[in-house]
Nucleic acid binder design. Structure first.
Lengths: 350, 350
DNA sequence: CAGCCGAACGTTAGCGCTAACGTTCTGACG
DNA sequence: CGTCAGAACGTTAGCGCTAACGTTCGGCTG
């Protein structure tokens, strides 16, 4: 069934009246063919609907001009990243194929890289998790670039500066006069979550603000966890005037809880998120947040991979791209009255 | 660079002290090998870290146990569909590779299928758009299944019953006593959008309710368009008591506009969406909507493709899967007073 | 005008695998 | 005890392509 109907290079060559190698050279734009013959061959190949067989190309060790991507499709932004990466790849005359990693798959992606190795010229792994097993595949024998890995990645990697972003978020709140600032964390399995938490604590310390464990509530990046975390925070006798949520989804969860408690955002409590998801600029209130440099990450990762494929032995680079504070409606100056109260409390706390 | 280090079948065979074909048979679980030898070979292959080269397999015309998927990653649900499809494929010992189609790509996916054909055993195309060019590739010489295509698809296809879902949505509103029901459409380039619009008109006619062009506002499935459409509807002298939005995103947009106008959902206006996006059960108000049978679609499409790959010449099937009405908070009975008013108006209109 | 160089081609081998045949050997049966 | 089926293997020929090395031939040099 499904008999072959696509012509092979040999058939094209025969019709063009040249040898197989001449045809190969013409089609791959390599020297050693006279201009007229080259044009002839290309025309005939086109007429015959010739499509180079990438499986055969790969088998001979040549490039397939395909890059493989391993990603968890359900992670926020993954699709944005992929779209960006696809565009960059296509601009370089590469195609991109994505392997959708099942959520929380315990199977080492080793076997997936093994598969992609046979098809693609290089692989980009988008794994928000710090994966020990990734290290076990340094012998992949194919260029690999990771996105969002921990800094200790064994491969060249591209990542957003979560720490810097977290710092910017907290400083923004502090500049607005807030002193009692809560943090709703993300899933600490993720490097990004840990970096944001670290930023919270560090900036707090830098600003000589007291660290109150009650203000640091565990979440998991989901809306619901933000909601529940905020409920806990609101139940405190001495509740925060601002909340830094580790991502936008949990920020919106927190906002929902705050409103349900009869309070207003940002008048009673300021909320800042992280990510700048698309609806952050649409939902009310528009969310103040930290924007991830997705386009730059896409561009950088693909370009880095293409460089590796081209044989440029790029030193095991770690590209860290800056994030950006986007101020919208969900944060505001701490009211003078409140600030005074807070100020007193803080001094007492010291 | 990147010297080969993965063993080939020949190397495994040599170590096992058998011929290449015997090793091939053992590894592919084919008859003609004694049980002891088979076990031996498998053990050795495992020890040596043997990974079958799919490019070589494909070249000989054998199966690669890979299915290709062409999808627009940004279309809502695509990632859910892909996740489901991946799970089904993996259960059948198949891997899945996704080609992310650029949004609004004018380039015929012909070339993409040509590429996937060299890698995969079959292809699933998720295209919400009715694509004329798809027809031009009936000569793909590889099994193809489409999802969400128009019924006139040249390939076996799997689709949600958008028409039936739209009917259910409208009947729900009518049963709640609503008579003046508006429709916010989706992008009519999409088959699904057209089917939902058709359902709106048909059920209106069936219920002998008057059709008012003013109540049918064009949208494009985005939140913003729902917002603007609702504003238009609210500006009508005789505004609707219920709105059927062609998808959840625009339903939430409409709700935002209604609230901004100082009205409440569902007390003043009922709103029903379509899709049952994840946050529909989380955002306030929880949205009454029509759930798409994503898991079933994933399962059906993969199984259909696998059947085609297995050579079962499934008659060019069109599998249409039923949707499900999910009643939540955003719709409610028309108030008795209002119903009376509306009833009068309707009789006058006749 | 011999010699030689390089552009324009052609030929060969092989990438890793499988289908399709050979070959060998065991054992059952008349 | 010959024979013959069939299981258990081995051998050969590609799949479509490219790297590496031949071959041919026009033209330039001394």
């Amino acid at each position: 069934m499904m008999k072959r109907q696509y012509p092979t290079l040999a058939e094209v060559a025969k019709v063009a009246g040249v040898s197989l190698m001449t045809a190969s050279r013409a089609i791959n734009n390599r020297p050693g063919v006279s201009p007229e013959k080259r044009e002839d061959i290309l025309r005939i190949a086109d007429e015959m609907g010739y499509v180079a067989n990438r499986a055969a190309q790969k088998l001979t060790g040549a490039r397939t001009r395909i890059i493989g991507v391993v990603a968890e499709l359900h992670t926020p932004f993954t699709s944005d990243l992929l779209l960006g990466m696809g565009a960059v790849a296509r601009a370089a005359d590469y195609e991109m194929l994505v392997y959708s990693l099942p959520v929380c798959d315990r199977r080492p992606p080793h076997s997936i890289i093994d598969m992609l190795r046979q098809i693609a010229d290089g692989v980009i792994v988008i794994l928000p998790y710090e994966s020990d097993y990734l290290e076990s595949m340094t012998t992949a024998h194919i260029p690999v670039v990771t996105i969002e890995q921990g800094v200790e990645s064994a491969f060249p990697s591209v990542t957003a500066d979560n720490y810097q972003g977290g710092c910017a978020a907290l400083r923004h709140l502090i500049e607005l006069g807030h002193r009692r600032i809560a943090f709703i964390s993300g899933n600490d399995r993720l490097t990004s979550a840990r970096d944001r938490r670290r930023a919270y604590r560090d900036v707090l310390a830098q600003a000589r603000l007291p660290y109150d464990p009650n203000l640091e509530v565990d979440g998991d990046f989901l809306r619901k966890s933000g909601f529940e975390a905020a409920q806990k925070l609101l139940a405190l006798s001495d509740r925060p005037t601002a909340i830094f949520a580790a991502n936008d989804a949990s920020a919106y969860g927190a906002i929902a809880a705050i409103r349900e408690a009869g309070l207003r955002v940002p008048d009673d409590i300021s909320v800042i998120g992280f990510d700048d998801i698309p609806i952050a600029s649409q939902l009310h209130p528009q969310l103040t947040t930290i924007r991830q440099p997705l386009q730059q990450m896409a561009r950088a990762s693909v370009n880095l991979l293409l460089a590796l494929i081209a044989g440029l032995d790029a030193p095991s680079e770690q590209i860290v791209l800056p994030t950006q504070l986007i101020v919208r409606e969900s944060t505001t100056m701490l009211k003078a009255r409140k600030r005074k109260e807070e100020g007193e409390k803080v001094s007492v706390a010291r």
